[in-house]
Design a protein around this nucleic acid. Structure first.
Lengths: 204, 204
DNA sequence: AAACAGGGGTGACATCTGTCATGACGCCGG
DNA sequence: CCGGCGTCATGACAGATGTCACCCCTGTTT
């Protein structure tokens, strides 16, 4: 019999982490050798255990899953990574694939799919949820420039223009220009709707 | 030996549902007899299987967990309910307890706590995550009137006042008055920040 | 009966935003 | 080397929004 696949599991919610561990442990040939609740912890565990595959939640308290995947790729070339998430936004998928992530799937898939994906990724292949892939292709890239995204992000909490300007080190007028062009690119009536739309697509 | 506790598990994300099932199945005296991915499904399954305890995710596609708990309480008085959630907002906890829910815990707890909570709730007790309880007591009730909450909710997607007015069947002037008073009650500079704050507290 | 809180509304005003034109600067690809 | 694009800025204007004062009506409390 072949060696089992060693897996690192990073997920901030304790209950879900234990549950996923229980699930993966039921699979033959898969061995969860480490768990982490934060991005930093995930990195440390990866260095300590050199797992074959790192299964990372997208949202972790400090670094997000994609940042962790990048760090792992640089530090441990032999370790393959995959992202699991509740928020299947096309933008995240693109960023993840660009970071060399081997798998990307939403938490809506079945346990069987997760296990298959782990094996596929371990074998050097890539597994992307078909539905998400279709969405990503249809959705296209963010039409926003870097600065527009920055400013829109600062607008996300409902702050007034003056505060955004102060935080972005820009004049209020410039902020309005960026917000205006961002909103028009996203066909939004105002910046708040623009924030909503950009969030939905994973662009901010 | 005593009868096992029969459990209904409602959670929209397939992977998490399977994982939780795997986890609960490892517990002695706990038997997951039904699963559901939506609120309606949960109700139907509850009627069909009469479980001892229904473990409900707070956010389900159609009805939310609290609505399901209310329906179950009315239809099956013998079935106890508990809510599990990623969003530990004080407002939800209050609403849940008011609906006769027996347990309320965030997904950050350990598997052991979940199992204990299931047993406690089955025994007629209540289990509320201590941290969440403290937050809820500290946070206090929503200062908003019913109408203010309604209007603020409609403002959540960034819609302009006119649209909110149309959807709430009010004049734009009245909408502005409500939004204004809501924002001042929440010490927000504008309605968008008010939405943010109200969301954070689970008031809308 | 009076006082009070909430729902719903109007009008006026000051300010905030969105929009547009315009200009400067730096960088990159043709 | 020119043109396009992104970044940053200014100024002007219209329309949206926030604020306040004051109105009416209803149900509850005192």
């Amino acid at each position: 019999m072949t060696e089992p696949i060693t897996v690192l599991l990073a997920e901030d919610e304790h209950l879900i982490r234990s549950a996923l561990r229980a699930l993966l442990s039921l699979e033959d040939g898969v061995d969860v050798v480490a768990e982490a609740a934060t991005g930093d912890e995930a990195l440390a565990m990866a260095r300590a255990h050199s797992p074959d595959v790192a299964v990372l939640d997208l949202q972790l308290p400090d670094l997000d899953g994609i940042a962790v995947a990048e760090a792992i790729r640089d530090a441990l070339p032999g370790c393959r990574t995959m992202i699991v998430t509740s928020h299947g936004r096309p933008g995240y998928l693109k960023r993840a694939l660009a970071s060399g992530v081997g798998g990307f799937l939403p938490k809506t898939v079945s346990a069987q799919v997760l296990a298959d994906a782990v094996r596929t990724v371990h074998g050097g292949g890539r597994y992307v949820d078909p539905e998400l892939a279709a969405e990503a292709i249809g959705a296209g890239d963010s039409p926003l420039t870097a600065r527009e995204s920055d400013v829109l992000e600062l607008a996300a909490e409902g702050a007034p223009v003056d505060e955004i300007a102060a935080r972005a080190a820009l004049t209020p007028g410039t902020v309005r220009n960026y917000l205006s062009s961002a909103a028009s690119k996203l066909s939004a009536a105002n910046r708040h709707e623009a924030v909503h739309i950009a969030r939905k697509h994973g662009w901010i």
